[in-house]
């Protein structure tokens, strides 16, 4: 499980963003979901973290739709957090 823990820690650090809005939103999400994310959701979250902050914020705010619908499920969790 150690590698899983480190993977989650990597995601936790990458959730540090340039926009306070994203910090606040992702912190709520991590607190609720990080410990129990499925493999698919982890991959999807990782992909979202690669987006520029403003684009990520647009997705969370529903101003844009994800290009790839495998991201939809985890995005919904972020929106609800």
């Amino acid at each position: 499980m150690e590698s899983g823990t480190r993977e989650r820690e990597r995601l936790r650090w990458r959730s540090r963003r340039g926009l306070l809005e994203m910090d606040l939103i992702l912190q709520r999400f991590l607190d609720r979901h990080l410990a129990t994310l499925s493999v698919e959701d982890t991959q999807a979250y990782d992909a979202l973290l690669d987006l520029p902050d403003n684009d990520f914020l647009d997705l969370v705010m529903g101003r844009a739709a994800p290009a790839d619908d495998t991201l939809g499920q985890v995005l919904e969790k972020i929106r609800q957090s």
Partner: peptide, 12 residues
């Protein structure tokens, strides 16, 4: 940089 450069706070 602690974070990817384009994620620096200037982005805000």
């Amino acid at each position: 940089s602690k974070v990817f450069p384009t994620r620096s706070h200037t982005v805000a």
